[in-house]
């Protein structure tokens, strides 16, 4: 059975977290039409300030139609591998143990930073804390990442956003 070493797991997870955070907050700010592509088709719980949101499409809808322009500044970021042998979804079910690689992991990501809501430059900065669980994007029948999701390797399984200051 494949057993990735610590180096590989650390590299894969930190790269994934960095790339995800970079792309996701950029989309929230300036490419809201792409927000849903960051979400797994089978999301678990998504929370914004305690409000439950149904899934990626609903999050995108809220940001497109209700949210004022928002500026995020990610100031600290950490991640851990939750499951080194995540049962990645495939076209027919989940990957079996023998098919797994270092990319079949789930990743816990925590972010801390500033958020500013609204157009005027003088709106106050709020502090937010956000936790994500990222899981591998489902593979198609050929074992590659399913198309139509912007080619992202990891997708949001669950998310918890809170303004904390």
């Amino acid at each position: 059975m494949f057993a990735p070493n610590e180096d590989t797991l650390t590299k894969v997870s930190t790269d994934a977290a960095m790339e995800f955070v970079q792309a996701f907050y950029t989309s929230l700010q300036s490419n809201r039409g792409s927000i849903s592509t960051f979400y797994s088709p089978a999301t678990s719980t998504i929370l914004f300030n305690g409000n439950v949101v149904a899934g990626g499409a609903a999050v995108q809808d809220i940001f497109v139609s209700q949210m004022p322009p928002t500026h995020y500044e990610v100031q600290s970021l950490d991640c851990q591998v939750i499951n080194q042998k995540y049962p990645t979804a495939t076209a027919t079910g989940v990957k079996r143990a023998a098919e797994k690689s270092a990319k079949d992991i789930s990743i816990l990501v925590t972010v801390s930073g500033y958020a500013k809501f609204g157009v005027p430059k003088n709106v106050p900065q709020r502090v937010f804390s956000e936790t994500f669980v990222l899981v591998p994007a489902p593979t198609n029948s050929l074992g590659g990442v399913a198309k139509g999701k912007g080619g992202k390797g990891w997708l949001i399984q669950s998310q918890n956003f809170r303004l904390v200051v």
Partner: peptide, 25 residues
Amino acid sequence: ECHSIPGLPDPSEQCEVGVGGLLIV
């Protein structure tokens, strides 16, 4: 805040789809 979360590692390695647990913030 707390909610359930699927796909956690199974310490006994018996369950391929992983086990369920809780995510607490």
